[in-house]
Amino acid sequence: MALNTPQITPTKKITVRAIGEELPRGDYQRCPQCDMLFSLPEINSHQSAYCPRCQAKIRDGRDWSLTRLAAMAFTMLLLMPFAWGEPLLHIWLLGIRIDANVMQGIWQMTKQGDAITGSMVFFCVIGAPLILVTSIAYLWFGNRLGMNLRPVLLMLERLKEWVMLDIYLVGIGVASIKVQDYAHIQAGVGLFSFVALVILTTVTLSHLNVEELWERFYPQRPATRRDEKLRVCLGCHFTGYPDQRGRCPRCHIPLRLRRRHSLQKCWAALLASIVLLLPANLLPISIIYLNGGRQEDTILSGIMSLASSNIAVAGIVFIASILVPFTKVIVMFTLLLSIHFKCQQGLRTRILLLRMVTWIGRWSMLDLFVISLTMSLINRDQILAFTMGPAAFYFGAAVILTILAVEWLDSRLLWDAHESGNARFDD
């Protein structure tokens, strides 16, 4: 018995066209964080690309023209004298008006014999932002004059995390709450300039795509075929072959399989920071003279006294001054041990922890910024005066060393310790 099946006739004509040209192939790229070699397709503007294995951002879609970056830099340069030299806060102490600005706080630190601690604050609040705007201006002028731009481009990517104007702005709020127990506070004209400078700096850093600047100024022929001998440069993120001198053909720094002496430098910085954190938390970090009496505060006791007036601000200072430094030390110690013992479990967790400490590390400088600003506000000789204690130097040095330890660690070593050939990683 035959089955009668109805015929289905399409209502619209289906047209099949042959592909007349070869589909576009992607360029081969190595991930600078996990060293995976993959094919990167062509990316349009405002599109980002991520590593298929570790999800690290390979290409950032946010990109401004150099002219727009230069305009932002010149605007920031105009704001800087007002943000640093004009009063941020006014207080009335014992019937006398006192003005506080950024430069005055750094000068008070240096004047009291601790120039190293003052230079830490100076670099993060004044030096690094000033280098940022002058570097962008150098790129703008240098591109037109045919100057060598490689050193500036190499420095810009590392400079971003040292620009800490946003953290200093939080420190202004913390210092205001600490001082309000002794005097009446009012915002100064410099505060508005400083807030504007923070906003412009944040926007500029978020749109400063150094890798795209490398592509514009020093374009290189990408690798179009897969080759395990391809290496990625950690300076400019170019994937290719080393030249005859073993250097990256684009930025001219040595092109090595792994960062040289990464573990040794990381261990040295980490152990030194552990040693410095002990006096930083045991010795007094601030000293207040009130009517001839002397009151010393460690980091913890200062947080407890701050909690009596504002528990939320005390929580912020606790996280930045105690929780973050010790968390960074514990995480980095764990990561280094996992590399030495070739741990194969929990790779995803370790990668996330490394990215976390990379982002939060700079916030530990908050305590030094609060001390710097408070020193310029309260300084009335023996009637009422505020000065920093010996722990300030140890704390600042420990924070900087932990930042350097994270920067010096080559994250690809975590993958080397893991089993080879993993296309995915999980716990």
Score class of each variant (00 low, 15 high):
residue 8 I to V: 06
residue 9 T to G: 08
residue 10 P to R: 08
residue 11 T to C: 07
residue 13 K to M: 03
residue 17 R to D: 15
residue 19 I to V: 10
residue 20 G to Y: 05
residue 24 P to Q: 07
residue 25 R to T: 08
residue 30 R to Q: 08
residue 32 P to M: 05
residue 32 P to K: 08
residue 35 D to N: 08
residue 37 L to F: 09
residue 38 F to K: 04
residue 41 P to N: 05
residue 46 H to V: 06
residue 46 H to W: 09
residue 46 H to Q: 06
residue 53 R to I: 07
residue 54 C to V: 00
residue 55 Q to M: 07
residue 59 R to P: 07
residue 59 R to H: 08
residue 63 D to Q: 15
residue 63 D to P: 08
residue 65 S to I: 02
residue 67 T to R: 10
residue 70 A to W: 13
residue 73 A to S: 07
residue 80 M to E: 04
residue 80 M to T: 09
residue 82 F to I: 06
residue 82 F to E: 06
residue 83 A to I: 03
residue 86 E to H: 04
residue 86 E to A: 06
residue 91 I to P: 01
residue 92 W to F: 03
residue 92 W to M: 02
residue 92 W to R: 04
residue 93 L to G: 01
residue 101 N to W: 03
residue 102 V to G: 03
residue 107 W to N: 15
residue 108 Q to N: 05
residue 119 S to V: 02
residue 131 I to M: 04
residue 131 I to P: 01
residue 133 V to L: 14
residue 140 W to E: 07
residue 149 L to A: 13
residue 150 R to Y: 05
residue 152 V to W: 02
residue 155 M to Y: 06
residue 155 M to L: 07
residue 156 L to P: 02
residue 156 L to A: 07
residue 158 R to D: 12
residue 160 K to H: 09
residue 163 V to C: 10
residue 165 L to K: 09
residue 166 D to W: 15
residue 166 D to T: 15
residue 167 I to D: 01
residue 167 I to S: 02
residue 170 V to D: 02
residue 172 I to H: 02
residue 177 I to Q: 02
residue 179 V to Y: 01
residue 183 A to I: 02
residue 183 A to V: 03
residue 189 V to P: 06
residue 192 F to G: 07
residue 200 L to V: 15
residue 201 T to V: 11
residue 202 T to E: 15
residue 203 V to K: 08
residue 207 H to Y: 15
residue 209 N to E: 11
residue 209 N to L: 09
residue 215 E to Q: 14
residue 217 F to D: 05
residue 219 P to G: 15
residue 224 T to P: 14
residue 231 R to G: 07
residue 231 R to F: 09
residue 236 C to Y: 01
residue 239 T to I: 08
residue 240 G to Y: 11
residue 240 G to C: 11
residue 242 P to V: 13
residue 242 P to M: 13
residue 242 P to F: 12
residue 245 R to D: 11
residue 248 C to T: 00
residue 249 P to G: 10
residue 251 C to V: 00
residue 255 L to V: 05
residue 256 R to Y: 11
residue 262 S to W: 04
residue 263 L to W: 13
residue 266 C to A: 11
residue 267 W to G: 14
residue 268 A to P: 04
residue 273 S to F: 00
residue 275 V to C: 11
residue 275 V to E: 11
residue 278 L to A: 14
residue 279 P to G: 14
residue 280 A to K: 04
residue 285 I to P: 01
residue 288 I to R: 00
residue 288 I to H: 00
residue 289 Y to V: 05
residue 291 N to P: 11
residue 297 D to E: 02
residue 298 T to W: 06
residue 302 G to Y: 00
residue 304 M to C: 09
residue 304 M to I: 08
residue 308 S to I: 15
residue 308 S to W: 12
residue 309 S to L: 01
residue 310 N to T: 14
residue 314 A to T: 12
residue 326 F to I: 09
residue 329 V to H: 08
residue 334 T to N: 13
residue 334 T to L: 15
residue 339 I to G: 10
residue 340 H to N: 09
residue 343 C to F: 15
residue 343 C to N: 15
residue 346 G to S: 11
residue 347 L to S: 15
residue 349 T to M: 15
residue 353 L to T: 13
residue 355 R to C: 12
residue 356 M to Q: 13
residue 357 V to Y: 00
residue 357 V to M: 10
residue 358 T to V: 13
residue 359 W to S: 14
residue 363 W to V: 02
residue 363 W to N: 04
residue 369 F to S: 05
residue 369 F to N: 07
residue 370 V to T: 05
residue 379 N to Q: 10
residue 379 N to P: 01
residue 379 N to T: 02
residue 383 I to W: 09
residue 384 L to G: 02
residue 387 T to G: 03
residue 393 F to G: 11
residue 394 Y to L: 02
residue 400 I to C: 10
residue 404 L to F: 07
residue 411 S to I: 07
residue 411 S to C: 08
residue 413 L to Q: 14
residue 414 L to W: 07
residue 415 W to N: 08
residue 418 H to A: 03
residue 423 A to K: 15
residue 426 D to Y: 14
